[in-house]
Design a protein around this nucleic acid. Structure first.
Lengths: 335, 335
DNA sequence: GATATTTTTGCACCCGCGTGCAAGAAAGTT
DNA sequence: AACTTTCTTGCACGCGGGTGCAAAAATATC
């Protein structure tokens, strides 16, 4: 029995179909020169044998794996789950599979990256946050990685393609909304301050607000996009302050921070949201819609961004301006 | 230049080191018979050239990819994020990479699965929920998948290895806790009722409670492990009922449902948790600890389970009793 | 110093499929 | 019918490395 080890090769199909192995493979190639008869014979034989072409061998021969490494380092943020779902689904639709690489452990990050490159991924997509320059550099150092893409985040590195929504436009919209809603004393809750790949939300908000309201707001950087961390920091920072010393709105860099903020305001400061302090987020994670948070936030056009990613992978990305995606402000009760 | 296309092969290293290609490869094999001198020469040459063995070629030759497909179909449950983090990290530590396969789209599920098998994954790990029998069957049909593992869930299929915590023990503990806390009128909030791979929590709870309190509780099946769905169903089911008609505790199959339940109780029924209706969950997702939920729940020993998974992958799993992991009850304010 | 052992190394062939080219078959021309 | 042109097909060789065995080198034995 040929298939006793469970693997049927093109050769097996070839003998059954009465053609050569190469004809078998041609049958699977869309634009191959092969007669309809042969293709049918092959396909029928393939079906009865349960043959499927081996992607390993194909990849080795073509130097194209149709594999994308997705580097994630921040599993505390529920938005990552949303991104993963969207990316894997859309990538799959275009024929790509996703290698999930956990880079949350600093030590293992470069090893994991090296490993992915040894698998000759067609591209590495970073949806992490605290990618310090070493990690990025390591990624670039792995020559085998043909493309390095920073997703949903700007990149300062030239060897990198970044696909993200227009932080400037989005934060401007948010700023205007917050201002016109009557808030006058905001504090910006920022995430980790990274160098290579970062968000511009803080800068945009601070300068936009200054331009609009005349004074530059304070900001509070949280060590990571973790609701708990935001909770603790906000509790620590604002506890015991008089009403007049408190901000009237916390503009948070994303929903993870915003949810921590809301909890802290309610359960540590004993205040109302939005009555005493309003809160805004960014991302529109599923939980943001819960009646408990009712978070005013900004939803990125993830599907479009993912499609742009596919275009980049297939080399048909027209230009470099992939940082101008526009999402939409989702206004709820929290501000 | 050899490396103009970015790929240095063992041959390149061989000429630099002045040995044959085979000696180069031997240098990378731990128990290979090679003189220390040669190994050093090779390693030095490899380093200056930046050589790393190609995993694609290795996999093809050895029929071992060190790749595990992780099939996920339920991205609404934050616990999935926790599992993914844990699994990817521990698998990586043992030399495995993870292929993330999104099977949430029913149509694409089998295609995705087929694709994974074409990559000759060493195993497919299901951490999904609504795997109906077709999906499972499809997975088994893909001969190339050497092992099929159902993680954190029982499997009725014999060709499948299931690694999960002891639903019986855990739910018994939970039942006892709830009963001794004085609750007498529980309703069980169940997830989708699947066949092949399912949880036994409902059955265990119902029978345990019957044994303890004398009467079999009602249960409410939710279409998916989605907080929103649970929210809507609970709102619809209990709205307008008199206090006496309401349960005093909702025992939920997992935290996702429990969080939806809590929100519904508070924001739709206008009642207190746990004052009017208490709630318990299962999984101990990060959000369960938030002051808003303070959810009493049960934490599975994910790390141990992941390690057991590695044992299975490496073929050194002693027996079939991988369903007896014990977690611990985490008691908080919600019940 | 010659022979027997053991260690190290090289090599042919294989994993499953892709590419470019040349031979063979089919279709089109006059 | 003989000859072109076009379509199909087969094949050598390559992708990068693993395996088992035999030749070569190093070491041990008497």
């Amino acid at each position: 029995m040929k298939d006793q080890d469970g693997s049927i090769t093109a050769d097996d199909v070839a003998v059954l179909a009465g053609v050569s192995r190469w004809t078998v493979n041609r049958a699977y190639k869309k634009e191959a020169s092969i007669s309809v008869k042969s293709r049918e014979k092959v396909m029928k034989a393939a079906e009865t044998l349960g043959y499927v072409p081996d992607l390993l061998a194909t990849s080795l021969a073509t130097d194209r794996t149709n594999l994308v490494a997705l580097l994630v380092d921040d599993f505390a943020n529920p938005h990552k789950l949303v991104m993963m779902e969207r990316l894997t689904r859309i990538l799959r639709k275009s024929g790509y599979d996703t290698l999930l690489v956990n880079t949350s452990d600093e030590e293992d990050a470069s090893a994991a990256l090296l490993n992915a490159s040894q698998r000759r991924v067609d591209a590495a997509v970073l949806i992490g946050v605290s990618f310090n320059d070493q990690s990025l550099e390591a990624a670039l150092g792995a020559k085998r990685v043909k493309k390095l893409i920073v997703f949903a985040r700007m990149s300062g590195n030239d060897n990198t393609i970044s696909i993200c929504c227009d932080d400037s436009a989005s934060m401007t919209a948010l700023t205007q909304y917050v201002f016109s809603a009557g808030y006058r004393n905001p504090v910006f809750i920022a995430g980790p301050q990274t160098q290579s790949a970062h968000l511009q939300r803080k800068e945009v908000f601070l300068s936009q607000w200054e331009r609009t309201a005349g004074k530059r707001p304070d900001f509070l950087p949280v060590g990571s996009y973790d609701p708990k961390m935001a909770y603790d920091l906000i509790a620590k920072t604002f506890r015991g302050l008089a009403k007049s010393e408190l901000p009237d709105v916390l503009v948070c860099e994303n929903d993870a921070l915003a949810m921590g903020a809301i909890d802290a305001i309610r359960y540590e400061l004993g205040l109302q949201v939005p009555g005493d302090i309003a809160v805004t987020g960014f991302d529109d994670v599923p939980q943001a819609a819960s009646p408990h948070y009712e978070l005013t936030t900004y939803r990125q056009p993830l599907t479009d961004m993912a499609k742009a990613l596919v275009d980049v992978l297939e080399g048909k990305s027209n230009s470099k301006d992939l940082n101008t995606f526009l999402g939409r402000l989702v206004t709820r009760e929290s501000a």
